[in-house]
């Protein structure tokens, strides 16, 4: 009986050793392909990239990971117009994190102006026949409620208030405010714009401006001390204030679609055409590979700046 037990124990140990798998992160590397394309509602020029992954530790550059000769197509307004666009490839020089020049290849199309609630599809067929596909729908327009004047008409309120309503689900919204003005440069009128921070960081000694970032919230306030700071910044270092004519303010809202909202909330990364990385696999909506296909639309609001407020800075009232 002891012999039997011994045999079972030895056999069990043998089985454990024999079935052990050797873990090697570099073994049997499986290449993944990522298709990234965010359709911009504020431009008719659209960009996409198709990148391949590379083994851990490989010093492959971004340009080398780019997949050439991809048949890449976009369909816009699939349910009605069914416009189709064939991407072309191009290359630009950009600077990496260390300030060194590097080539960035990309695919592009021109003439795509998106509207709310339009279905879109994208398809990439690689030179080896691998097919990647995705679809999205441009977001609905936001219903807006906001102040019409700077400073706000409500007595004593020290912020410009804007709130929005989205009929279904959550959407990331990226608000921005800018002041539009002209500068009289020796008789020539130059059009200029300056972005307005939401607030000044009072906790910091130098009170640096804090600019708005994409939010899941449904409202934003631009504090008057930040708007005051921007008005002063317009003519900083220039004593001839009459050279500046203030036209007004404009608030733009970039409304992310469902996919882009999902990507943003999973990575907390701000949009950048060239920085969506292949290893960001928390969110992917690409069939047959990895990556992101999304869109955002842009909504604009014109805001009047009161004459008294403009004159207070010595500026002229522009048109």
């Amino acid at each position: 009986m002891k012999i039997l037990k011994l045999i079972i124990i030895v056999a069990g140990l043998f089985a454990l050793i024999a079935c052990e798998d050797t873990v090697n992160p570099n073994d049997e590397f499986k290449e993944e392909i990522a298709l990234n394309c965010v359709i911009h509602g504020d431009s008719s020029y659209q960009i996409a990239t198709v990148l391949r992954s590379f083994p851990f530790g490989d010093e492959t550059s971004a340009a080398e990971s780019f997949v050439d000769d991809v048949q890449l197509r976009l369909w816009y307004d699939v349910d009605e117009q069914d416009d189709a666009f064939l991407f072309r490839d191009s290359v630009i020089t950009v600077q990496d994190e260390n300030g060194n020049d590097m080539k960035a290849k990309f695919y592009y199309i021109n003439g795509v102006n998106i509207e709310p609630e339009k279905a879109m599809e994208i398809e990439a067929i690689l030179p080896n026949g691998k097919r990647l596909f995705s679809s999205t729908k441009t977001p609905e327009k936001l219903t807006l409620s906001h102040d019409y004047f700077i400073p706000p008409e409500e007595f004593g309120r020290d912020y410009f208030h804007l709130e929005w309503y989205f009929p279904e689900g959550e959407r990331v919204v990226q608000p921005r405010m800018k002041i539009k003005y002209t500068y009289n440069n020796h008789g020539t009128k130059e059009y200029r714009e300056i972005f307005v921070p939401v607030k000044l960081d009072e906790n910091n000694g130098s009170a640096p401006p804090v600019y708005p970032s994409p939010v899941l919230d449904k409202e934003i306030d631009f504090y008057m001390n930040a708007i005051d700071w921007t008005m002063e910044k317009i003519s900083e270092g220039d004593s001839v204030k009459e050279n500046y004519s203030i036209i007004g303010a404009e608030v733009t809202l970039l409304v992310y679609d469902k996919n882009l909202t999902g990507y943003y909330t999973s990575t907390n990364t701000i949009l950048d055409d060239y920085s969506i990385r292949i290893d960001e696999i928390d969110f992917s909506n690409i069939e047959g590979g990895l990556g992101l296909f999304g869109s955002f639309i842009q909504q604009k609001i014109d805001v009047s700046i009161s004459s008294n407020y403009i004159i207070r800075y010595g500026y002229l009232i522009g048109k």
Binding site: Q71, R73, W75, D82, D83, A84, I125, G129, R131
Partner: peptide, 14 residues
């Protein structure tokens, strides 16, 4: 019934 995005003359692939 689907727009291929190609315009004549061209080669449709895949």
């Amino acid at each position: 019934g689907r727009n291929t995005a190609f315009v004549t003359p061209d080669t449709l692939k895949w």
